[in-house]
């Protein structure tokens, strides 16, 4: 038996909006730790890792580890039927081939339940080793989204270079080229407006902008994004989910051949 009650139900809608462009079908894994998901895009170029910790739910009951295969477009359709202030409860019985989403209005005067069929999904689970990163950039998520959007109108790939000058995002396309340089800036009114660049070693990597732009669908989840770079490793683009966990996107670099 599984019963997860999330008071801030809108969080779940934002999570779905963040990943459904990248991944179509995925297994949600439920354990005593929390509600999690790991999935790759169909080309196996990007990977998303989601964790919503058990402590973040008002009520969390998971009698045994359960993996529930869901079509994310269908799940998003169902969650769209909830009100923005609704409490969402996810329920499933052991061995059941369906999951129920229950929506309660804040004043408890409207209660609905939507039952969704589960599916069998063959998915590979990858081990993600702890790594030392050459550079870690912490910046406003809206700024990162704007840079990715702007550069995608010029080119298909972005070169992210970190040096002691700061972090440079560069692209090149048929109509021209663009460079955006950000310097560390901690003299801001609010901590979430700061740009902090931690560099152990200079690093420069090339990535497909299409994927980066897809990751920025997670922007409504957090004011801050953290980008971790190491040569010879996928970049990690992380959005923290307040008091609950995170969404981490991993993207394999492009390499010269």
């Amino acid at each position: 038996m599984l019963e997860l009650r999330l008071v801030q139900g809108s969080l779940l809608k934002k999570v779905l909006d963040a990943i459904k462009e990248l991944v179509k079908d995925a297994n949600f894994d439920c354990s005593t730790t929390g509600f999690s998901l790991q999935a790759m895009d169909s080309s196996h170029v990007a990977l998303v890792s989601l964790l919503l910790r058990a402590e973040g739910f008002e009520h969390y009951r998971c009698d045994r580890n359960l993996s529930m295969g869901m079509n994310l477009d269908n799940m998003a359709k169902m969650l769209k039927c909830s009100g923005n202030d609704d409490i969402i409860t996810i329920k499933a019985d052991d061995g059941s081939d369906s999951v129920t989403f229950m929506f309660e209005s804040p004043t408890q005067d409207k209660i609905s339940d939507f039952e969704m069929k589960l599916m069998d999904i063959d998915s590979e689970h990858l081990g993600i080793p702890e790594a030392e990163y050459h550079a870690i950039i912490r910046m406003p998520s809206a700024e990162f989204a704007k840079i990715c959007r702007d550069l995608a109108s010029i080119g298909d790939t972005v070169v992210i270079s970190v040096s002691k000058e700061g972090v440079k995002f560069s692209t090149r396309g048929d109509i021209g080229a663009a460079n955006v340089v950000l310097r560390q800036n901690t003299t801001v009114d609010k901590p979430e407006e700061a740009t902090i660049i931690e560099m152990n070693e200079p690093v420069s990597l090339t990535f497909a902008l299409r994927y980066m732009n897809s990751f920025t669908k997670a922007t409504p989840l957090s004011n801050i994004v953290t980008i971790s770079l190491s040569s010879e490793l996928p970049v990690v683009v992380e959005y923290k989910i307040a008091e609950m966990g995170y969404i981490r996107f991993y993207l394999a670099p492009k390499i010269e051949e």
Partner: peptide, 14 residues
């Protein structure tokens, strides 16, 4: 020419 690498060439199956 830049070639796109895959995630599976960095992380292995568990």
């Amino acid at each position: 020419v830049n070639a796109q690498r895959q995630i599976t060439s960095f992380f292995s199956k568990t």
